[in-house]
Write a protein that binds this DNA or RNA. Structure first.
Length: 831
RNA sequence: GCCGAGGUGGCGGAACUGGUAUACGCGCCGGUCUCAAAAACCGGUGGGGGCAACCUCGUGCGGGUUCAAAUCCCGCCCUCGGCACCA
């Protein structure tokens, strides 16, 4: 009787054993080369989903493989535990965010353990625990010291009915998600991190990240959005509040300056109110309201029509002295540049549309090389290069040169200067929320903003709070929390009640893992020096910009503080694709979610992991298939049976019970070759993260082994070698079944502590090849022959083929192309 | 609109540097075992033509380079993901 593959017993047995023996726990070993393998830690939403399983299965293969290659591997896990869902759950189910979060962590932890990932659980990190977040507060204080944390006013979404601030995702089509009130904008003093100070460094640093996908780097580059241009001053015609005034614009096209025929301000620009007549006040207010409404729908496909309002004012074009009208326009952003734009309709499409709508002159200042364009008749802006025209002393010069020449001229005349702008904005970290890391600051009427002293950390987030059903943070109303002493003068002080964006927690957790129990510092410098940088980071493409940019920013600040050597946190990045079903992303609303727990129960963790690695390469989206899962499960059953069969055979022979042919049997040799070729292929493909082809190679391997076993002529040493290789190669992918069979084979615990197998180059060499013979590029024959033939010999064999000569009838041979060891192509023409 | 990824059998996918297109798995068809079924195992499986040997077409579409193109070049179409008036 063949033993049944009882995956549940096997898997739980080994999970327990791994736990007891702590074989996945690591410590720094200065003499030993290290690898730091990291997956993006999860938000503990309650249940692990297939995306998690995919992420962690990929990481686990890489981690286990590197252990077998002799590296000291750090492979930790933890919980990104602060965040909005816990507060929503608190409102809905009347549970404390802390309790809700911790019970989710407990159940997800159970799930991850059941999947058998090789984590060092002793390094588990929970960002909502004081031991962790106190160091987030410490980091905030250091940022403050370095001038990287500051306060300024910024607008928030405000629901007047709930009297609370809403996150963008809580605003649906301009309405509050809970009560459907119209959401207003409110200005609040908030905390920012000065990431813009690192814009250039973060941009330059991308160059070094050769182990990152090109598309992620491009996304970050676009997000930082460096553009070179000039700042130009435009004097306002007439006085404003009794004073002369200049408005500065940023332009990337100083070469088009002579073509500026009007001037635009963002509707929210602070100078607008000063510049307008009282009669226009109402019109401006109406205009602003309309634009604000448009902004609420900004994710729609339709681009709103260009729209403006003349302010009854003019500015002087500083180069040609012309008075040009000033408008506010719906397409000018206050956040970018200076919130003011010089409009050149002939050479900018947006300005062109605006000018046609409001009948503003279009003046061409750059003429394309071989074409004449006329401002009055052109139908779209010309944004390309050409020769200057209508530009006074610059006429006739190629526009490309004038970018620099005009900037230099502006500088000389003191009306402008060369300038670089970034699209990147400072990082708003204030959240008017309860379930987050308290910002460690105290407000004192006498001393102003005072940081909490380091030895007072952490500012504890009060537990046992009352969360009302409107979603307001309970912190401002908690007198025991707010009321405190000023650390400077000892007088009365009020605590900051804003908490930090959860991205602050995930910007340094990879450093905490290096020394998770350190109570003297966020991380020990020695441990970080050993483990950092992360050698392989694995996660979803959705974090291409924000999380990965913030983590890079933190790392650079720590590096500047002298805390770590590495300037970049993640040397190599793998972005995995989504798990989809029926062509769509899995989601509750579509009802196409597959629960990993059910799969594990029905088929086991090894099957779940193996399928997810087999169905597609990591970067690609993965189509879930229940049938495919069954196929993989069948494969594991075959592995189980075949290995047990082999083990029995080997021990029987060794006990002298069986008689079988051995020695230099040709089928035995071909199994040896198959074994070594599989080792080679699997090793190569793991290095390239082509796990799907690794698994198919192992499938072919077992197919070959089964065929060999059926021959009846079996060789003990060949069978032993093949069985051992099979288990070793498969162990990073299906860790439980291989551990079990390793034991059955009489090998010591654990297969996961073994060395990765190596192959014999002699056995990988082919002695037999299939020679492909083509006539005029078409395959006409396939001839089995020996390897290592000369080109002439190959051509001769090809020419002697009957099938080939049939196709040569009536044609003369022009030449023979020979690809050594592979192919002969006979090129002919009709006689 | 811009940026990025991709389009290969009935399906998921393979083909590394241009050299056997469709490995491996799923599904389907046929068989062995069985009273029967399940499981397991064996064989077949891109389209068209032919009794067959074989011929022919074929990697989104149209062109090109090459002895040879899924792979390289030019133009177009479609799908997915991200960003969006960035001056």
């Amino acid at each position: 009787m063949i033993d049944r593959y009882n995956f549940t017993d096997i898997e739980t047995k080994w999970q327990q054993k791994w736990d007891e023996t702590g074989i996945y726990n690591v410590k720094e070993e200065p003499g030993k080369p290290k690898r730091y393998i990291l997956e993006m830690f999860p938000y503990p939403s309650g249940e692990a989903h297939m995306g998690h399983v995919r992420n962690y299965s990929i990481a686990d293969v890489i981690a286990r493989y590197n252990v077998m290659r002799g590296y000291n591997v750090l492979h930790p896990i933890g919980w990104d535990a602060f965040g909005l869902p816990a507060e929503n759950a608190a409102i809905k189910n009347k549970v404390q965010p802390a309790r809700w979060t911790n019970s989710n962590i407990a159940s997800m932890k159970r799930q991850l353990k059941r999947l058998g990932f090789s984590y060092d659980w002793d390094r588990e990190v929970n960002t909502s625990e004081p031991e962790y977040y106190r160091w987030g507060q410490w980091i905030f204080l250091k940022f403050m010291e370095r001038g990287l944390a500051y306060r300024k006013k910024a607008p928030v979404n405000w629901c007047p009915s709930c009297e609370t601030v809403l996150a963008n995702e809580q605003v649906k089509a301009g309405l509050c998600w809970r009560c459907d009130s119209v959401v207003e904008m409110r200005e609040l003093e908030q905390w920012f991190f000065k990431i813009t100070g690192y814009a250039q460094e973060l941009l330059d640093g991308l160059q070094e990240l050769s182990g990152w996908p090109e598309r992620v780097k491009i996304m970050q580059e676009n997000w930082i959005g460096r553009s070179e241009g000039a700042m130009v001053d435009f004097p306002v015609v007439g006085e404003v509040d009794g004073k002369e005034l200049k408005i500065t614009v940023f332009t990337t096209r100083p070469d088009t300056l002579y073509g500026a025929t009007f001037f635009l301000l963002s509707p929210e620009h602070p100078l607008v109110d000063q510049m307008i007549d009282d009669r226009l006040k109402e019109d401006v207010a109406v205009f602003r309201r309309e634009v604000a409404l448009e902004a609420g729908f900004d994710r729609s496909e339709v681009e709103p029509e260009k729209k403006g309002l003349f302010l009854g004012r003019y500015v002087k074009n500083p180069l040609n002295g012309q008075d040009i009208p000033v408008y506010i326009a719906n397409y000018v952003l206050m956040e970018y540049g200076t919130g003011a734009v010089m409009a050149v309709p002939a050479h900018d499409q947006r300005d062109f549309e605006f000018a046609r709508k409001y009948d503003i002159p279009v003046v061409v200042v750059i003429r394309p090389e071989d074409e004449d364009i006329d401002g009055d008749t052109m139908t779209e802006a010309y944004a390309g290069e050409g020769v200057m025209t209508n530009s006074s002393i610059f006429d006739g010069i190629p526009s490309r040169e004038c970018l620099k020449k005009i900037t230099a001229y502006l500088d000389k005349e003191k009306i402008g200067t060369a300038s670089v702008h970034y699209r990147l904005r400072d990082w708003l970290i204030s959240r008017q929320r309860y379930w987050g890391n308290p910002i460690p600051v105290i407000y004192c009427d006498r001393c102003g903003i005072v940081p909490v002293s380091e030895n007072e950390l952490p500012v504890l987030l009060p537990g046992d709070v009352k969360i009302d059903n409107k979603g307001r943070s309970p912190l401002p109303a908690l007198e025991g929390f707010v009321k405190t002493k000023c650390p400077k003068c000892g007088g009365e002080g009020r605590r900051e009640t804003d908490t930090m964006d959860t991205f602050t927690c995930s910007s340094w957790y990879f450093l905490r893992y290096c020394s998770p129990h350190n109570d003297k510092a966020p991380f020990s410098e020695e441990a970080a020096r050993y483990w950092m940088p992360v050698d392989q980071y694995i996660g979803g493409i959705e974090h291409a910009v924000m999380h990965l940019l913030y983590a890079r920013f933190f790392t650079r600040v720590f590096s500047d503080m002298g805390l770590i050597g590495a300037k970049e946190p993640f040397s190599n990045l793998l972005t995995q694709g989504m798990v989809i079903k029926e062509g769509q992303k899995m989601s509750k609303s579509k009802g196409n979610v597959v629960d990993p727990g059910e799969i594990v129960e029905k088929y086991g963790a090894d099957t779940a992991r193996l399928f997810i690695l087999f169905a597609a390469p990591p970067e690609m989206d993965l189509e879930w298939s229940d049938k495919g899962v069954e196929g993989v499960h069948r494969f594991l059953k075959r592995v189980y049976r075949t290995v047990l069969d082999n083990v029995r055979f080997v021990s029987d022979v060794q006990a002298g019970a069986a008689t079988s042919g051995s020695g230099n049997d040709p089928s035995a040799k071909s199994i040896r070759q198959l074994t070594h070729r599989t080792i080679k292929k699997v090793t190569q493909d793991i290095e390239r993260f082509n796990f799907n082809t690794v698994i198919s190679a192992v499938m072919e391997f077992i197919n070959g082994l089964q065929k060999y076993n059926e021959t009846g002529i079996r060789d003990v040493s060949v069978t032993s070698e093949a069985t051992e290789a099979l288990l070793l190669l498969l162990s990073p992918f299906a860790p439980h079944i291989t551990e079990e069979l390793w034991q059955h084979a009489g090998k010591p615990f654990s297969v996961h502590s073994e060395q990765w197998p190596s192959y014999d180059p002699e056995l990988v060499k082919t002695d037999q090849i299939t020679l492909i013979v083509q006539v005029d590029g078409k395959v006409r024959d396939k001839i089995e022959t020996v390897a290592g033939l000369s080109q002439e010999e190959m051509a001769d064999i090809a020419m002697s083929s009957e099938r080939v000569s049939k196709h040569l009838e009536g044609r003369s041979v022009l030449k023979k192309v020979v690809v050594p060891g592979k192919l002969v192509n006979i090129v002919t023409r009709p006689e």
